[in-house]
Write a protein that binds this DNA or RNA. Structure first.
Lengths: 143, 143
DNA sequence: ATGGGTGCAAAACATTTGCAAAAGT
DNA sequence: ACTTTTGCAAATGTTTTGCACCCAT
């Protein structure tokens, strides 16, 4: 396959030493462009529009793989609300208990004090973190 | 039923306006005394030792109910690692990626700055939060 | 050429539901 | 007495697996 004009998603797959397939490219692209935090099933349905034969099993395997490689992050807002975020970097998530929407809070910085404390008091080496703020979003408060 | 000497768990059930049953008392007691973060199934197995006929469906219903009432918190460290914590108050969780153990970090305070920012920038009203720090625990680092 | 990725269907596993009997207030 | 909770079994939903074929390197 030609290698001259790679999309950013293809570069990312390469640098994670993964084979570049249309399915993987499409899934990664979709997540990186989305502002939502689609579930496994939602990712599947969206991918199906472009590639009508992609199986759900592939979506499961691919999302797991991307997560292991640090290309995306899993956002488990609760046991029954799990989504995927194409931005693997730390940012707090606002989870509305009414409409279930999850908003990114891009401007958050890392809670360094916790990382130090984990190391000092527990000998625990932190390599990533997730912060969830639960409550009610602006829209839902107006009802 | 006599009402004279109530256990703390029974008082808690009362104040959440829930009926006091042996199953509920046992589940709440178990979680409040545990330092682990048992899964639905682990709770079921532990309860079975004392009450051999408690059904899994009851465990599901009860944990959901306790969570709604704020008696416990659900700890979804990832999509496939969900446990329950008898302490409903905020405290960071250290999640070891190797041995999957979840440690409580009791001394953490709330990240107030995020709550203010959520309100100011998004009109979002925060009423609870969860912080997960992922990495490697002291034991696992020694291998 | 070869190792890894994909799709399929089945298997395994997890969660929810409806209902009758039991228990709490 | 009334209402809620429980246990059961079935139904539903979700995730994983094994395998043959295909594709990227």
């Amino acid at each position: 396959m030609g290698v001259c004009f790679l999309q950013p998603e293809q570069k990312l797959l390469r640098s994670a030493s993964l084979k570049v397939t249309p399915q993987r490219t499409a899934i990664l692209e979709l997540l990186r462009e989305s502002r939502e935090h689609p579930s496994v099933d939602q990712v599947h349905r969206m991918i199906l529009q472009k590639y009508p034969s992609v199986s759900l099993a592939t979506i499961y395997k691919t999302l797991d793989l991307f997560k292991e490689k640090g290309l995306i992050q899993e956002v488990a807002a609760s046991a029954r609300q799990v989504g995927y975020d194409g931005n693997p970097g730390f940012h707090p998530h606002l989870v509305c208990k009414s409409c279930k929407e999850i908003l990114d809070m891009p401007e958050g910085k890392l809670p360094q004090e916790y990382i130090k404390e984990a190391s000092k008091n527990y000998g625990f080496q932190v390599d990533s973190q997730q912060l969830f703020l639960y409550g009610q979003c602006a829209k839902c408060r107006k009802n």
